[in-house]
Amino acid sequence: MPEPAATTDTEVSAEVPESDLVRRAREGDLTAYDDLVKRYQERIYATIYHMTANHEDANDLAQDSFIKAFSALKSFKGGSSFYTWLYRIAVNKTINFLKQRKNKYHLSLNDIDFNAENDPDLVALISHKTPQREAGLSELQKKLNEALLKLSESHRMVVVLHDVQGQSHEDIAEIMGCNIGTVRSRLFYARQQLQGYLAEYVKPL
């Protein structure tokens, strides 16, 4: 591996193509890699956070994923996008972590932002439960995360990637290394399970 070049203050333009940044990062340019990290840090963190329901674990795993990705850049052949490849590393790291953690988790949830209180769909879901909207959202958040943690890692991952992050079935199949049919069936099963766990909040049609 070439020796990483020291990070400089040189601004990396947002218009620089991803492939160019990846090529430079493969040559050891940490400035280029810094830009790649900035591009994907929030999405990678969010995916891991929704899987672990723990802020500290998500932070550590996200960092580890980026570090691992840098050291494995040589093996990146460009068959898929860097974004998908990076996701795959993060997903595998997270699933391995969760398998080791098994029943030793505790919730360390991020706060819900102010916009959630103004979301009409969410307000409708909780308005009949409690007159205190904020307390209702926090309770709902806790219930939702507990329900997600009851799912297996692979089922939870499909729900997070599709229903929370809005990824397509095709991208999820590529990230998780399975076919689209498997993604669809896992998604269906996971949603069924969640609907059961959250019956008091979800009214089946």
Binding site: I112, L125, L144, V164, L205
Partner: peptide, 19 residues
């Protein structure tokens, strides 16, 4: 459609963001 209500509920996760 069957899981529309659940998907609305899962939108709450999008509002869980770090400071």
């Amino acid at each position: 459609q069957r899981f529309d209500s659940l998907r609305q509920l899962l939108k709450l996760k999008q509002h869980e963001i770090p400071p």
